[in-house]
Design a protein around this nucleic acid. Structure first.
Lengths: 348, 348
DNA sequence: TTTATTTACGCAATCGTTCCCGGAAAAATC
DNA sequence: GATTTTTCCGGGAACGATTGCGTAAATAAA
């Protein structure tokens, strides 16, 4: 199916003009007479002419598109972030190309190569939970390629970064559980490679210590695949349920882990919050409809997307190499569950 | 921040060769000596050379990317569909450019123009609930531009289409409610413009008639914005709750409507399924975690994405104009709620 | 040795657009 | 009427890569 778009040359031939004249007429140059301009414009409209963006890109040495790599689109947090990214990008006339790593390092690297060779002008990335080797990213970065990290940061690479105050978010959530009287709080978290994992676990530990409770390594479960594999989460939950003094609460550090944990508990027949309380990071809009009303840490995902994109475009459009980089920290919000069963109150 | 990629010319100059020789060496042409090939390959690796896809696109007159327009990414059904689209596209070496209409006709038209002028090779689209004017789409189609419709079809335009058996899905869901003894079943559905609305409502009506129940227009509520506006759904629910003989069940025809309806019922303090039963289309993975276990119609979203993309690529890569078009109908699945409260059984 | 055939490479056009020059005709100035 | 200045437009290179064609040298066949 061949579909041939009209070119400047078509207009030129039809009107017995040169391509330069047509080009200038279309760009409303001052050195073209009003009569000729009108002629060209009319004919262009008749042919439904649109400048070929690919030819433009080739000349301008920029594609007008930015790449985004996230682990999963089917994740409230990321889809909200993408909405933020899209809103800024479209405002500025950029196209957004979204790719998913599905938490696989190999897929991430493939995607990275693919996007980079696809002539995108810059990259927004939240690394996969499996990412430990940074050579590819570093190479791209040292090459002068504009990259902005969001959510899951890579500390080693000097560029703009946007994230939430993970420590504080986790701290608040844990403090909330402690305030409700829970004492033995477990934590199910992501791959230990991730910046967000370290920070969120640190916040959790700090909250416990604030209450004079020392954190138990056996109560912190790392899920390498970040909740992508339900089995992994289920295993973590089951191990926790078998601990000698059973934990009375679980704090989860991501969307998939929160819902995965809930799924595992439901399957195991453990009542929330009757037998165990649950609190975690989540941007799902369905939280309030869940069978167990839980308190969640919500991230300003849309805002994060906006900020990251603004920084990236700034990087792309900067005339000279940018040397000092921003790290923007946004605040999370603790959305407390509408009603906490009375029996739980004043448990301490 | 200028980032200059190595070109074929750089290699040619460094090695005192012509660009043609370098190009042929890289493409492993038989008319280049093994020695020269090795030289070129080595130098290309050293410079981290990658062919400029934009230059290629200009020559080949194809961009190697396809556009996708959906109403919302943050919707389980669409994000699953996109995963299917991505899987096929990537297999075949195509890039996917995703855009959202947010159920706005204006945004859809803007996006359409934008994508079309962005040199995509083809388009996959599920039209917005607000789309009534088809001139833009028709123009593009008559122009010979490859388009495949999925989910929300446009009947007037002759091209490949992929959808589920909406009639049957709705019929099954309604029959399920009837089998459980519900008699007065309302329906909350999408904009009346949409193909899926007509078909699903027809399935609902047919099931009622099968049981000798005539459908009441007052029990069918059309939400123009397709659940994007919670207020609209809430209003519909509230009206239904005030009907003289109150309906004892609601059938919803889309993801957003199902959860929106549940939200409205919860706010109104109406118990599900105690006071009213709910069944509807939904691809959300959180359904089983909701406070009210409901039966849902699930669509093979991933599969739909795959099939639609295969058809589109077939259209794009076809040598001559395609004249006869496929309409693929996939089957839905009724996922019945795990346990239905006994009191509801044998209500009739 | 002469002719025919490979082998191995360079030249130049092409894709669609922009933009630097250069220049003819018209208009303005002296 | 002669010169200068505008006005308006065309020629051609450039962006990065591919490819048909031409051709020198090297090799094979006569």
């Amino acid at each position: 199916m061949k579909y041939k778009a009209a070119t400047i040359k078509d207009i030129a031939q039809a009107l017995h003009l040169s391509t330069s004249t047509v080009s200038r007429a279309l760009r409303d140059s001052h050195e073209i007479s009003a009569a000729t301009k009108q002629l060209v414009l009319d004919h262009a409209a008749k042919l439904n002419y649109h400048p070929n963006p690919i030819a433009l890109s080739l000349k301008e040495k920029k594609s007008g598109s930015i790449g985004v790599i996230v682990s999963e689109i089917a994740n409230s947090f990321f889809s909200q972030t993408i909405n933020g990214i899209e809103s800024v990008a479209n405002e500025k006339g950029y196209t957004v190309i979204i790719s998913q790593s599905h938490e696989s390092f190999e897929k991430e690297v493939r995607t990275l190569h693919y996007l980079a060779s696809r002539s995108i002008d810059g990259l927004l990335i939240s690394v996969s939970s499996a990412t430990k080797d940074l050579t590819q990213l570093k190479a791209l970065h040292q090459y002068g390629f504009p990259i902005v990290f969001f959510d899951r940061i890579v500390e080693d690479i000097a560029t703009h970064k946007v994230m939430v105050d993970n420590f504080q978010g986790a701290y608040n959530a844990t403090m909330h559980l402690l305030a409700e009287g829970y004492q033995r709080i477990a934590c199910i978290t992501n791959s230990a490679h991730l910046s967000i994992t370290r920070e969120r676990v640190a916040g959790y530990v700090a909250a416990l210590e604030k209450h004079g409770i020392s954190s138990h390594p056996s109560l912190i479960k790392y899920c390498f695949h970040g909740g992508m594999l339900l089995d992994e989460v289920t295993a973590a939950v089951n191990q926790l349920m078998k601990a000698k003094p059973r934990p009375d609460a679980i704090f989860t550090t991501s969307d998939k882990l929160t819902t995965g944990c809930m799924r595992a508990l439901k399957k195991a027949g453990v009542a929330i919050p009757g037998e165990i309380a649950l609190t975690g990071f989540s941007n799902s809009e369905l939280i309030e409809l869940l069978h167990a009303p839980i308190t969640v840490v919500r991230q300003p995902a849309f805002e994060m997307g906006r900020v990251a994109t603004e920084l990236l475009l700034q990087l792309i459009e900067s005339k000279r190499p940018v040397k000092d980089f921003d790290t923007r920290i946004l605040q999370t919000e603790l959305i407390t569950a509408p009603e906490v069963p009375a029996k739980k109150k004043g448990r301490k």
